[in-house]
């Protein structure tokens, strides 16, 4: 059963509605004691990465999250929290995956936030992308991205530059797009995570 880490960053109605539709069981993690009841976790997140990190720190869960050995999936800002640092708020983050979260450069050609459906190309073999063809579209809404890194990029997408659509290190996963809003392939990805 999935434990959703609750720390006050963003609404999770769409995520839980999707898990309900898929028949994936979940519960809420508010405290350290809640963590033990689950065999995998989702860190959701919308909004400002620096502010989200501040809220997560206030829960007291940070030391425990950093040493989790069960599968963890960060979504959007929840993914960015797994990285070392974000330019958004000049914030130090969980530093679980040693990469940085940077801002897209504004230009006439590329509007920021990067909003809409873009193609995702897996860079490694991993169960998270099982039954999802390379180049499938996922729904993105973000102004900050995680830099591309051969070691940690699980799948990539190109906007102003190539960036990490998802990252992977051991039991930690993150996706920049919103699987709960990404049609059938988003649902497939959440089902895959529930079976990792």
């Amino acid at each position: 059963m999935i434990g959703i880490i609750r720390y006050g960053a963003g609404n999770i109605f769409s995520l839980t509605a999707t898990l309900d539709r898929l028949g994936i069981a979940y519960g809420m993690v508010h405290t350290e004691a809640d963590l033990e009841q689950y065999d995998r976790y989702i860190i959701p997140g919308v909004g400002h990465a620096g502010a989200a990190m501040h809220k997560l720190e206030q829960t007291g869960l940070v030391p425990k999250i950093k040493v989790l050995d069960k599968p963890v999936l960060g979504i959007c800002v929840g993914m960015q929290l797994l990285t070392s640092y974000s330019e958004e708020g000049d914030a130090n983050l969980l530093d679980i995956v040693p990469v940085k979260t940077l801002r897209f450069k504004d230009s006439a050609e590329f509007k920021v936030p990067h909003t809409g459906w873009n193609q995702v190309f897996p860079e490694k073999n991993n169960k998270l992308f099982e039954n999802i063809p390379p180049g499938s579209h996922f729904y993105f809404v973000h102004s900050y991205f995680i830099e591309y890194d051969e070691a940690y990029t699980l799948s990539s997408t190109t906007y102003t530059n190539k960036f990490s659509a998802s990252i992977w290190l051991d039991n930690f996963y993150g996706v920049q797009f919103h699987p709960e809003k990404s049609g059938v392939y988003g649902e497939t990805l959440l089902t895959n995570f529930s079976n990792i």
């Binding site: 109605f13 769409s14 509605a17 999707t18 309900d20 539709r21 729904y139 809404v141 919103h178 709960e180 809003k181 990404s182 049609g183 059938v184 988003g186 649902e187």
Partner: peptide, 11 residues
């Protein structure tokens, strides 16, 4: 909005 969010998988 709740009814729609429960049913559909796009924004």
């Amino acid at each position: 909005v709740k009814a729609v969010a429960r049913q559909i998988n796009i924004p």
